[in-house]
Simulated assay, not measured.
Amino acid sequence: MAQAYQIRAARALVNWSQTELAERAGISLSAVADCEAERGKTSPSTLEKMVAAFEQAAVFFTENGVERRNTATYDISGEGWWLRVLDDVYYELADQNAPEMLMLFADDAQSPPEVIEQLRKMRQAGIKMRQLVQEDNRYLMGPPGEYRWVPKPYFLNNVTLVYGDKVAVCAEDNTKAVVFRDKALATSWRNAFEMLWRGIVLAIPDRSEADETY
């Protein structure tokens, strides 16, 4: 189980404030402060959430400390898993120049209100988006220029996201995401997306039939 000194060291390694760690882990600021100050006993679930937040930043806990790795693989699952994937995108891209999320094989019409709000938050933070969607899909919540149609025989509603040095792949009947933090892998997926964007995909949709927009 993670120790208080490891939490402090991990936070210093990624230059996060206690507030940022609390936000990324989905816990209260007081829980972080109490843990680091060793006030009382931190619950195992709180420690697990903090450790998971650090692992998403490729910081791992070792027997005697912490270390940052160039590559990492982790799952995001359980209740609200897709929102937590989008949180991961937001934190990965928030401080980057010209941030962009690439989305393969998505469908805006299937996004519930809380997902729509999260995507709006990302757009307001300056994160650009491009999507490959199914041919004839006109439910487009972003500007039409952000979309390209994929011919129906090649489309499967199983989303993959490419963002920063990460690739997130939906798995197990869209009940979780497997996230790979690997610069070379992300670059290869980004190149594949660009080939699809410029190659086999069809024309830009000419209008949207979405009930609302971002």
Rank of each mutant, 00 (worst) to 15 (best):
M122D: 10
V32M: 11
Y90I: 08
M103Y: 00
L47N: 04
K41Q: 12
R130I: 11
G142I: 00
P113I: 06
D108E: 11
T73D: 02
W81K: 07
V89Y: 03
Y147W: 03
D34F: 06
P112Q: 07
P113Y: 03
M122G: 05
Q124L: 13
V85D: 03
D34N: 11
A57P: 01
G142Q: 11
P151C: 08
V150W: 00
A94M: 14
E92C: 15
G40Q: 09
I127T: 04
I76V: 14
G40I: 08
E114S: 13
I127Q: 05
A125S: 14
D95K: 08
V133W: 02
D34R: 11
D136K: 09
P153N: 03
W149R: 04
I116R: 08
Y90S: 10
E117K: 09
E67L: 05
N97M: 09
N97Y: 01
A109S: 15
T46K: 09
V59E: 03
K121N: 08
T73A: 02
G78P: 05
G78M: 06
R123Q: 14
E36Y: 05
Q96D: 11
G80W: 05
R69I: 02
E100L: 12
F155C: 07
E55Q: 15
I127W: 03
R84P: 07
Y90N: 07
Q131V: 13
G26A: 05
Q131D: 12
G126R: 02
S43E: 13
S28F: 07
R123D: 15
D75E: 13
V115E: 12
N137C: 15
E135C: 04
Y74S: 04
V32Q: 10
Y74T: 05
E63V: 01
P143W: 00
E117T: 09
G126P: 04
E79I: 03
D87C: 07
S30G: 11
L140G: 04
N137K: 01
D136S: 12
E48N: 13
Y91L: 11
W149F: 07
A25G: 09
M122P: 04
M141V: 14
T62Q: 00
D107Q: 14
R39A: 08
D87N: 10
Q131Y: 12
I27C: 06
G126T: 06
L102Y: 07
V85M: 14
L29F: 06
L86M: 10
A125Q: 09
K128I: 04
L156A: 12
M129V: 15
E100T: 10
L102Q: 09
W82R: 10
R68F: 05
N137S: 11
D88V: 10
L47G: 00
I76M: 05
L132N: 01
I127R: 02
F105G: 02
N64R: 01
R123P: 01
K121W: 04
A98P: 01
A31I: 10
Q131S: 14
F105Q: 12
Y74F: 14
A25L: 10
Q110T: 14
W81Q: 09
E63R: 01
M101N: 07
M129G: 08
P153S: 05
Q131T: 08
V133P: 03
A94I: 15
Y91N: 13
L132F: 03
V150P: 02
